[in-house]
Design a protein around this nucleic acid. Sequence first.
DNA 1: TATTGTTATACTCTATAACTATA
DNA 2: TATAGTTATAGAGTATAACAATA
Lengths: 156, 156
Amino acid sequence: MQKPTEKTTGREAEPISESHLDDLIGYHIRRASNIIQADLARTLKPFDLRMLTLSALAVIAGNPGLRQSQLADALEIERPNLVVVVDELERRELILRERTPTDRRAYALTPTLAGRTLLNKALKAVQDHERRLFAGIPDDLKTDIINVMTKIRNNG
Amino acid sequence: MQKPTEKTTGREAEPISESHLDDLIGYHIRRASNIIQADLARTLKPFDLRMLTLSALAVIAGNPGLRQSQLADALEIERPNLVVVVDELERRELILRERTPTDRRAYALTPTLAGRTLLNKALKAVQDHERRLFAGIPDDLKTDIINVMTKIRNNG
DNA sequence: TATTGTTATACTCTATAACTATA
DNA sequence: TATAGTTATAGAGTATAACAATA
């Protein structure tokens, strides 16, 4: 697949140029993000988790009792998209979803023991996935990148 | 919406913690990528382009005569997903799609004048979008980030 | 009136299997 | 047989409008 011998295709046998795109930093970020997403999906498959279910579970575990709207804000997703995620976590008994006494419109979300256990196992796998994917990148550059990504979110 | 006055919700009025997630660099990249994608979609809307149609058009313009399979490789997408993109570009007369004489299975893709013109206008808007989104980030850090993103693609 | 959560719906990007026509 | 392009289909993430229950 990586042999450079181009069969004649009616076109010059040069490498494909992406000159219009390859100084667009957003383009590079998006393509790397796709790779990360695909690798993360493979990583989470044994736990039957997706990125959204994992990150929802993680935020619930870090903030037991929070409401769905707070969770949606934290994950930066729209409330309707959270509903099915929370449905699934509840159905699998990874979280509890209880009406709050002070506001009977809202639900308080808390992780179950099974939820915490699964989360911890999955997070270990995710950390391995990150070590593999970001191997060879100095820690201070990683920190810079996290800061830049945060700044982008604020600029957007 | 950004007032920090938390109405009592049956839950302590602390900021939401993402402690399980916020040292995951991939998570930050993915969230920034979502912001970029949303902003780019807004940027391209006046041109009736999406990211995929723009990047396909850009690669075709930079490599006139290339085949669809080469384009799919360059964009790192699967061939089936490219078909509708090329269909649309052809229907809008932004590209030509001609059988190659040497291999009658393949198509040679070339931009039309209209395609080049639209591309140039859209790229200007995209560059503005990038300047806005990545404002305040030093150029050498941008270069580092592009290199890291490329490395991630190779690690994945 | 405004907010919480819900339903319905749609769009974009991505992925795989199976097909056709050429090679 | 292998490759180029296609069709069909599915999954995942994201977005908006409209609704019921509650505040």
